[in-house]
Amino acid sequence: MNVFRLIGDMSHLAAIIILLIKIWRSRSCSGISGKSQLLFTAVFTCRYLDLFTNFVSIYNTTMKIFFLASSYATIYLIFMKFKATYNRNHDTFRFELLIVVSVILALLINHEFSATEILWTFSIYLEAVAILPQLFMITKTGEAESITSHYLFALGSYRGLYILNWIYRYYVEGHLDWIAVLSGIVQTGLYCDFFYLYITRVMKGKNLTLPA
């Protein structure tokens, strides 16, 4: 554990909590992509199966349980409790493609051809692109509520901070996992346009509207 990873994890945690608060307080999941949330739930489910087989630390176990529970709670709020507020018509990204490509890549490029390792690798590839339905939705509607943009900023920052963590681990521990690093770079890269808009607009108190 190093400071980059800790801040990264806290950023990830903050993102999830911001999203739950937004939905709960407004009694609405308007502007949120249910498809991205489904993908994140699949990511956590596939990656954290090792909860049952591999104990790392209390911190690790607690965070995994929280991420799993909160992602299923988010899905419940979007597709059941507040489903009348879900903008189904704007959430039209073909997310099946992301799953198919991630499965194929995980079968081809992995550290070890075993069930748990392939599921872990699949979750890393899928996480890299899981935000695309959400970004697509914002592009389609041309705007996002400020709380949604805070959510996205925290969520995007998390993997960026993990990149610093991997650089640190490479130099200090000699640890390098190309699958995680390259996927993390892709994942962070997808947020670049959004980061630019967030810094130039939302941080100056304006709404996040896309240039026409």
Partner: peptide
Amino acid sequence: VNADDSKDEL
């Protein structure tokens, strides 16, 4: 790469 070394990450 030891495949287990990344598994302490979230």
